[in-house]
Design a protein around this nucleic acid. Structure first.
Ligand code: ZN
Ligand code: ZN
Ligand code: ZN
Ligand code: ZN
Lengths: 152, 152
DNA sequence: CTTGACCTTAGACTATACTCTAAGGTCTAG
DNA sequence: CTAGACCTTAGAGTATAGTCTAAGGTCAAG
């Protein structure tokens, strides 16, 4: 099959397949007389393998290692594959933790702000980002300044 | 103060400060005779504001909006700031969910593999990424092939 | 024989946020 | 005066993973 067909069947774009070829991940088993890339079922398996690996969060570099294991299984041991998976688990877990902390901070930041159409003069978000301690102004009642009517 | 001093006090590098200047986020209040950037306490506040915003996960583009709110608070309303924070919360929450799903998939992938020094011939990680259903081989006992001695 | 779909290549561009380099000018302490 | 620290600029490089373009060749159908 030609690249367009492989793209359709693998879920990768033709562009991406050529890009992967440049990166050394996959290459067509043959070329047609007119130099078109011709892929076979084996190539399709490989393309799907790459796609599945990417979907699992592995980088192209890691996929490369998986491919080399897959290409010659007896030459590798389970630890080769599992080490990568374990490391990815650690990395993803770490990132999740970081993002959860960010999320908590964001909630604190956001919850203190009324979010209404009042002037941002006392907006706790801006104040908190500025330097000052987080002051709750979910209501602006207590800090009327008179420069603006209460719009809300 | 010169850029090096601002860098020290703000926690941003001089390089980054110049980069932010190019992006229109912060600029020195004056220049010395020799064209050095000269910053004042106000600039320091701004630099710290940017750093805090970045640490909260906001993009430079979002920081720019916060800065414009901060620069003229009466011209803005709380919703302007809160909308950004809320959107960020949604985005971060979404990413966390995605990563958690990836994490679950990774665990499934990894847990089925023995991770030992056995040949990867039956490695469930490779098999699962390949196409085949996830086969547990935490023990290789049941699939002796005889091509290799049991190394473990 | 032409139209349109599909293919080829090298290389530029996207996004995000820096990070660093080269080549040179300025300033301060000893 | 000189070494070394610090500053200036424009522009290139880093990382990741594509995504797209230009300019052209190939192929099947009508
Ligand atoms: Zn408010
Ligand atoms: Zn507010
Ligand atoms: Zn195993
Ligand atoms: Zn295994």
């Amino acid at each position: 099959m030609k690249i367009g067909e492989l793209a359709k069947q693998s879920g990768l774009s033709a562009h991406t397949l050529r890009f992967y070829e440049k990166q050394g991940l996959i290459s067509p088993s043959t070329r047609s007389e007119s130099n078109y890339r011709i892929y076979n079922q084996n190539d399709l398996s490989t393309a799907k393998f790459i796609k599945r690996s990417r979907d699992m969060g592995f980088s192209l570099e890691e996929v490369e290692v998986f491919l080399s294991i897959r290409a010659d299984k007896p030459a590798h041991i389970c630890a080769d594959a599992k080490d990568i998976a374990q490391q990815k688990i650690v990395d993803v877990g770490q990132k999740i933790k970081e993002m959860q902390q960010v999320l908590v901070a964001l909630h604190k930041l956001s919850d203190a702000c009324c979010g209404g159409s009042e002037s941002a003069e006392f907006c706790s978000i801006i104040e908190a980002l500025d330097d000052r301690p987080l002051t709750d102004h979910t209501s602006h009642q207590d800090k009327q300044v008179g420069t603006k009517e209460d719009v809300a």
